[in-house]
Amino acid sequence: MSGNLTGLREGTYLNDGSGGVAFYSPTDKNAPWVYNRWVGDMVPVSSILAYDATNQNEKYRSRAESQYHSFLSDYGQVNDPNTLDPSTVGNWFYNYGGPNNPKSYSGGYNYDLKPKNVSDKMSLVHDQAYDKENAVGGLDLVLNFSVIDADIAFVRNQFTITEKYLSQFSSIPGGGFIYTPVIDPISGSPLSFGTSVNSAIQGSFIFVVTLPKIFIFNAMKASD
């Protein structure tokens, strides 16, 4: 097989009778390759588009052109500094629970990923509230008075999720219980045990860490 396919990723299957798949590099504008059944090998898409197509391979050429435009779109997105950098995805809890929020290639926080569930949504709201106050990191979590309302709301919302999970189970006379599911508005599934536990952990952590800050802030207000 000719052509340098090192580092290339698989693209869209060309269901046009060619029996091949398209390969292209998201960072190399000159390296999209497709399998050409008439050549019997991998060839650059650019060579297909430049070729004076015969009636026999006009359909294939059309598919290749479509594939090429798709590649150019991917190429532009990957090289956009505001695009999500996949290597930054992965937090303590879901996408937004914890200190390791996703970032763009430019280094700024990126919120393109959808929250995985309602607990993750509350983390996202908390993070965005911090952004509005230019608050970042553990120091602001412990000392910044301007985000106290966001901290209190976060703790309340996370504990509410745990309470709603527990409310799904109600005992009945004579023993046993009835399960009445509460739907997670983000995931569309019933609130899970895992979501409940993670909400309780996050709510408890933020409560403990921010309690001294809240106590000091209220004492300062009372002395005014």
Score class of each variant (00 low, 15 high):
D120K: 08
D120N: 06
K121I: 02
K121A: 11
M122L: 10
M122Y: 15
S123P: 03
S123E: 13
S123Y: 14
L124D: 05
V125H: 05
V125W: 10
V125P: 04
H126I: 03
H126N: 11
H126R: 15
D127H: 12
D127G: 07
D127W: 11
D127E: 15
D127V: 09
Q128V: 08
A129P: 07
A129Y: 11
D131C: 01
K132I: 04
K132V: 07
N134Y: 07
N134I: 01
N134H: 10
V136L: 03
V136G: 00
G137E: 01
G137M: 01
G137H: 02
G137F: 01
G138C: 01
G138D: 05
G138E: 04
L139H: 03
L141C: 03
L141V: 05
V142G: 00
V142K: 11
L143G: 03
L143F: 13
L143Y: 14
L143H: 10
N144L: 08
N144C: 08
F145Y: 13
F145A: 13
F145E: 14
S146V: 11
S146T: 15
S146K: 15
V147I: 15
V147M: 15
I148S: 12
D149I: 08
A150Y: 13
A150Q: 12
A150F: 14
A150V: 12
D151C: 13
I152K: 12
A153C: 01
F154C: 10
F154R: 10
F154L: 13
V155A: 06
V155L: 07
N157K: 12
N157L: 09
N157F: 06
Q158L: 09
Q158T: 08
Q158H: 14
F159H: 13
F159C: 06
F159L: 14
T160K: 15
I161P: 04
T162G: 10
E163P: 04
E163F: 13
E163Q: 15
K164F: 04
Y165A: 03
L166V: 08
S167C: 04
Q168E: 09
Q168T: 06
F169R: 08
F169N: 05
F169A: 02
S170R: 12
S171F: 10
I172L: 08
I172P: 02
P173V: 05
G174E: 11
G174I: 09
G174K: 12
G175N: 08
G175Q: 09
G176S: 03
G176L: 02
G176T: 00
F177M: 02
T180M: 01
T180F: 00
T180H: 03
T180I: 02
T180Q: 05
P181K: 07
V182P: 00
V182M: 02
I183F: 04
D184W: 06
D184S: 03
D184Y: 04
D184F: 05
P185K: 10
I186N: 06
I186G: 06
I186S: 05
S187G: 03
S187P: 01
S187Q: 07
S187F: 07
S187D: 04
S189R: 12
S189L: 14
S189A: 12
P190Y: 08
P190M: 05
P190T: 04
P190W: 07
L191P: 00
S192I: 00
S192C: 01
